[in-house]
Design a protein around this nucleic acid. Structure first.
Lengths: 132, 132
DNA sequence: AACGTTATGTAATAATATAACATTTATAAG
DNA sequence: CTTATAAATGTTATATTATTACATAACGTT
């Protein structure tokens, strides 16, 4: 189980926004949405995002420069993330598949490198977009 | 085997630079390095990068906003990429492991989504950095 | 209360990437 | 070989994403 953190004021505002949005959000779109709550500067957003990523409440979708709330309540999962991304509608969901995560967490090759973390992004067309 | 493309002038200059560097390069560092060859504007770099990514001669390391030459001469591999990244020295190498690529290319879940592409980034400490 | 740590506020700027438009070069079809 | 089309180039401006630097405030511990 995830350790419970007490989010600070800005962290909570920003986490709630991302969480309620149900999808990935970009930093400046977050900024725009929280300005009425007194968060005025990019740095305030990025600081909260950094912390939220660090504690695993959100993940960064690297290929999209966007942030999504963790949908995986039970996890070591900021160190082991997988997403599916629709290239048409840009819908993103977190993949939680224990076989996949076991396979990747245990992956090792002959490089002598010990992997402590991974991020996997799958791309394709979601059900809806496929049938258009 | 990869289809052979005739690279254009700018594409060739930029590919050669990245390839010779042996590691990931960032767009503006590329720009700096090719200015003496007459490539003056970011857009010229990004256009060549886009094309080189498209044809699989280079890959983008999403978590680093950097580009690396494909080290995998035989492949369908711009659609199936995996990298190991040292979080200390930032060394990056392309993983070519047929079991891994088979496993991921065949991966499917219950989302109804057909995956046509993936990108996987492993993080950790490389041999050298581990022993420091 | 004093201390160290974490979070906040603010301004400025760095780093990454794209839009819009004009022109040139390469490729293929007639 | 010439016309049409697609691909690449050149150039300016601007949009988007992210960090540096510095000052202050709040929180948690002893």
């Amino acid at each position: 189980m995830q350790k419970e953190y007490n989010l600070s004021k800005n962290q909570k505002i920003i986490f709630d926004l991302i969480d309620k949005s149900g999808g990935p959000m970009k930093a400046y779109s977050i900024l725009f949405n929280v300005q009425k709550k007194g968060i005025k500067a990019p740095l305030q957003v990025y600081r909260a995002l950094d912390k939220l990523v660090e504690i695993g409440k959100i993940h960064k979708i690297e290929s999209r420069n966007a942030f999504i709330a963790c949908q995986n309540s039970s996890c070591q999962i900021s160190k082991a993330t997988a997403f599916s991304i629709c290239e048409s509608c840009e819908n993103v969901s977190e993949i939680s598949n224990s076989k996949l995560s076991k396979y990747l967490s245990n992956f090792s090759d002959n490089s002598g490198m010990k992997y402590s973390k991974y991020n996997l992004e799958f791309f394709g067309l979601c059900k809806k977009c496929k049938s258009k």
